[in-house]
Amino acid sequence: MGVDAELLFYALQTGLLLGGFYAAVSVGITISFGMLDIVNIAHPAFIILGAFVAYYLNSTFGIDPLLSLVIAAAPAFLLGRLLYKMYYYAFERHGEESLQGLAFFFGILFIVEIGLILLFGVDYRFVEAPYISTTFNFWYVSLPLRLVIPLVVGLLMVTAIQLFTSRTFLGRAILAVSQDPGALRLVGGNPVKIKEIAFGVSIASAVIAGPLLIIIQPVEPSIGRDYIGRVFAICVLGGMSSLRGTVVASMIVGIAEAVTATFGGPAWAPAVAFSLLILTLLLRPEGMFQR
């Protein structure tokens, strides 16, 4: 029993640390899917793209993954804007975004994945940084920096996006477009431009989460598929468009996965997110938080 309690404590600790990383991974889907109604199923592919950018910069130039995160942000934002333009002109403008748009992002997912396989192969890649193998221990608390740093960066990312959406006019326009694009249009706002910027932020957040992922674990190009269910489950559980909800839901999924992996075996962990998604849709389809 004593051993079980100790295991549970470690599972909770790992789950919380992992939850912070999941917040970084999911905040972009909260923007694209929760706020903009864009089912960007390719979101995890951009996380992996970010991870490989960090790998390339680290292995070629010795650049720290945390610095590569800063370097990749602006190009990723522009890439996101370009993708939204393509999506808008090809599908959304004609009202054909639901099925064809989904197929479009499926295509993007595979293009990114195959592109990475062609460039880097199918082997697992990792980065080197002094903090990756460092762990601080206090009493029973064990804090590996490879999990603490993603937690801190993840929470900073969500806080920054929260401040952006609540304190700036552009951010508030994103909230407005998520609620009623028609009304925004009639008070002079161009929803297409605003959605383009918001989607840029969404993709930038995914690419930024990539270096955090490769700090936590080695990556290979197809690993992003593991995150598809997870990010959508977190978005729905958190209330679709609530940033606060995204953080809480990330923590819940992180803890649930860690507890499941500890007591039921790691093989069960991937099923946790889907189970939570189904439970949420059955019991509280509006999620835990509503903006």
Binding site: F169, R172, A173, L175, A176, Q179, D180, G182, A183, L184, V187, G188, G189, N190, R291
Partner: peptide
């Protein structure tokens, strides 16, 4: 059709920014 997530004043500020 107000923007419910924003205050009354913020609802007025959006057109001031975009339309004006």
């Amino acid at each position: 059709r107000p923007f419910k997530s924003q205050s009354v004043r913020q609802n007025i500020e959006i057109p001031l920014m975009f339309a004006v």
